[in-house]
């Protein structure tokens, strides 16, 4: 062997190693992750393709089969905190996911705490599993099996499965980090109108504006008049400590879409009634201050 050929052989070794690590798979590995109010949710799975096979369900996946909605190693769902799935409590942890597929009626979703199972395991029913029926819907054909989070809300999300024309949306609830509810009996000290002045350069109106606190539907509501930005037209005051609140900004449906922790409203009470307040930023500098008018 010439020196040149020997050397080129050496050079090729790392390339061979690299190429052997790569592999084209009929069902490529994937994962989808979503955080909702501090709860991290991850689905890890392999994605089979239809590959022109007819009747994915009934032939490729036989009726009555306890099937992992994926391929290769069983699909897993991991939740960093306790959740509810379709109304069923799921303790935090990692589970393998299985579905009992039926020609008629609802399918059954199975969460098995044995997360590392091969797709051929088809686990029997155990006391440790969480099982509940799920309803199917029809959607335009999806070639590749897909898990997704098509909707996100303050208190949860929709976790959706689709392959072929079968679509299964699962309502998922997380443990909320804040309660927007506020006791009516404790609201009186804060209610009323304040003269409010932004003190951060370049933010808000340089002139005083009205800041109004009211009580509606079990929440402490607040708004500026005029508003600094349309998206901040009104918000709930969420109590984080005695007399300290963070704003939960509301969308046009009245749902909280964002809680801004970098903006703390500190009310100062005199004789049991809020006389003034300061708004402090993440750096604890005063962003705005206000004094009661009525």
């Amino acid at each position: 062997m010439s020196l040149v050929r020997w050397a080129s052989g050496l050079l090729a070794l790392p390339l061979l190693t690299a190429s052997s690590a790569a592999q084209i798979r009929a069902s490529e590995a994937a994962s989808v992750s979503q955080t909702v109010d501090g709860t991290k949710l991850t689905v890890t799975y392999s994605r089979p393709r239809g590959r022109s096979r007819d009747s994915l369900f009934g032939k490729v996946v036989t009726w009555g089969e306890v099937w992992t909605p994926g391929a290769n190693m069983a699909t897993t769902l991991e939740a960093s905190k306790n959740i509810k799935l379709a109304g069923h409590p799921i303790p935090k942890g990692k589970y393998s996911l299985w579905m009992v597929v039926r020609q008629q009626g609802d399918w059954t979703l199975v969460l098995d705490p044995r997360a590392e199972l091969f797709h051929m395991a088809h686990p029997d029913s155990t006391a440790q599993q969480i099982r509940f029926p799920v309803q199917r819907a029809e959607r335009p054909f999806a070639e590749v099996l897909t898990w997704s989070f098509p909707e996100i809300r303050r208190t949860g999300a929709t976790l959706a499965f689709q392959w072929g024309s079968v679509y299964i949306p699962l309502e998922l609830e997380v443990e909320p980090s804040y309660s927007v509810a506020f006791p009516a009996a404790e609201s009186a000290p804060y209610l009323g109108q304040y003269e409010y002045k932004w003190s951060m350069p370049g933010v808000g109106d340089p002139k005083p504006v009205a800041f109004i606190v009211s009580y509606e539907n079990g929440t402490l509501l607040a708004r500026w008049d005029p508003v600094p930005y349309p998206e901040w037209s009104r918000f709930v005051l969420i109590r984080i400590a005695p007399n300290w609140f963070v704003p939960g900004f509301l969308d046009d449906k009245g749902e909280v879409y964002e809680v801004e922790k970098g903006m703390v409203f500190e009310f100062k009470l005199t004789s049991g009634r809020a006389a003034e307040l300061e708004v402090r930023g993440e750096d604890d500098k005063v962003m705005a201050s206000a004094k009661r008018k009525s």
Partner: peptide, 18 residues
């Protein structure tokens, strides 16, 4: 009222600090 800074501007400002 004249908003001298948009909400997006406010958030950009806050992000800019970081």
């Amino acid at each position: 009222m004249q908003a001298v800074c948009s909400r997006r501007g406010f958030l950009a400002w806050a992000g800019g600090v970081l």
